[in-house]
Simulated assay, not measured.
Amino acid sequence: MLRPCYKIALTFLFGLLLASGCHSSAKDVNAENPANRALNATVSVSFGPDGRLWRLIPTDNAVFVDSSTDNGKTYGNPVKINSNTQKISTWPENPPAITVSASGRIHVLYYADEQQQSTSFFSYSDDNGQTFSKPVLISDHADSAMHYMDQILVDNNNNIYTFWHDARDDRHSHHSATGALSLYYAVTDEPATAEFSNRFISGGVCSCCRTAITFSPGGKPVILVRMVFPDGTRDHALITMTQNGQWSKPQRTTHDDWKIDACPEHGPALSIDTQNRAHLAWFTLGDKRQGIYYAHTDDLGKTLSEPMPLGNAGHLPGHPDVIALGSRVVLAWVEFDGNATDIVIKESTDRGLTWSKDRKILNSSAKSGHPKLVSNGEKIFLSWTSNDAGHHFIEI
C-alpha cells in the first residue's frame, strides 16, 4: 500500500531502495577518493567560468569537493567542507547542490540529520576550492521543520538564490490531500554576512518530488514543480519571477490528471533555451498519460506542445533530465529491464521539433543515482553514479 508523501520522505531519510572564520582544507582528507563511497550514489557537478568541472561528493559523515581540468578524466585532491562530523543525508531524488558563479565563487548546499531530519547547510569558497566557509543553516525554522530538495542559482550579478521544500506550515495548502508542503527561497549577494531571509513562494507543492529551477534568458528564476492541486491531482506548474522580483501564480502546464494520495518521488526537469523556449520532461501515471514525457512551451506553460512519450514502456523508464544548448536539446533517462539499469539518451538539433532514435550509453546492475545533464557552454555532458563503477562523466 502506498504511503502519504511526508511519510515516505521520512522513510527515505533512514534508507532508500533504489565568512565565518572556520575553514577546512585538503589535509583533512584520507588518501582514498571519497567519490568511491558516495552516499546513495549521489554526486553533483557544475562547471566554473574557466571550464573547470567541480564535483560535490556526500559520504556517511562528511561532504567533499574536488575538481577536474580535463572534463572528468582526472580529479585533484578532495577538500572536506564540514570540519565537524555530521550524519549526512542524501538520496538520488534529493542530492546536494553545487554551482559556481561568474566570479568563480563556489557555492554548496548539503543535508545533515541534525535539528530536523534533512537540515540544509550552505558553504562557499572564494579561493578556488582550497578552503570552504563554516557551513551555516539556510532555514530560519531549522530547529522545528524539515527542509530539503535544495537548489542554488547564481545570476550574473552574483545574487545567490537558494530554494527548498519546507514543512514549517501547511496554511497555504487549501485542500485535504496529504504530502503537500511549501516552496521557500532566500536571496543574497554577500554570503559572508547573509542571514538567508526566508521567503514564501507557493504552497501545495508535492513534498517528495524534486523541483526543477533554472534562469530565463532575462536572468530571472523559473520553476517547474509538481503541485498537489485542491482535488488531489498531482500535475506540474511553472512559476516565474517577474522583473520586479515578485512570483507569478503557478501556471498549470501538464494535464495528465494523476490523482494519488501518495508520493511519486519523481520530480520534473526543465531547461530554457536562449529564445525563451522552455523544455520540460516529467513522469506521470495519470488517467490521460502514463510514463515519462517531453514537451516544450513558448509562453511559460500557457500552451504546451504535444507531449512525446519517452523510452521502452516495458523497461520502466523514469527520472528524465533535459538540457538545451543553442538549437540542440538532449534528453536522458533510466530504464530497468529487471536485471540492470540503462542510461538512454535522445537528441534534437532543431529545438525539440524532431528527434533521433533512443541510444543506450551506460549500464549498471548495481545501485545507482539519477542521470544529470550539464554543459560548459560549448558541449553537453552526462553525470551518473553507480555503486559498481563509481562516477561516470562523459560527453554526449
Rank of each mutant, 00 (worst) to 15 (best):
F12T: 01
W258N: 05
S173C: 03
G291S: 07
L39S: 09
Q151M: 04
K87M: 09
S368C: 15
A145Q: 05
T242M: 08
N71V: 07
G338A: 11
Q251Y: 06
R234Y: 11
P92S: 15
A112W: 12
S365L: 13
Q151S: 08
F229L: 13
Y185N: 00
S383F: 07
I292S: 03
E265A: 15
V225F: 01
S139N: 12
D28Q: 11
I260K: 08
P217G: 11
Y294K: 01
R210E: 08
G15V: 06
V100Y: 08
K302C: 14
C22E: 13
D256P: 00
V329F: 12
T240G: 08
T162F: 09
T42L: 08
N156T: 05
S356K: 03
C209K: 00
G72W: 02
P264V: 02
A194I: 02
L316K: 12
H319Q: 02
F196R: 00
S365P: 04
N158M: 05
V100R: 02
T354M: 10
S202Q: 14
T42Y: 06
A177T: 04
L331Q: 13
G352D: 03
P307L: 04
A167K: 04
Y6H: 12
F64D: 01
A31E: 13
S173N: 15
K249I: 05
D273P: 01
S207V: 01
P320R: 14
A295T: 00
A194M: 12
A9S: 06
T85Y: 10
A167T: 04
D298E: 15
C5F: 13
S103G: 07
I88C: 15
L16M: 13
L325N: 05
T385M: 14
S20G: 12
I152W: 02
Y294R: 00
N339G: 10
L373E: 03
A192N: 07
R234M: 10
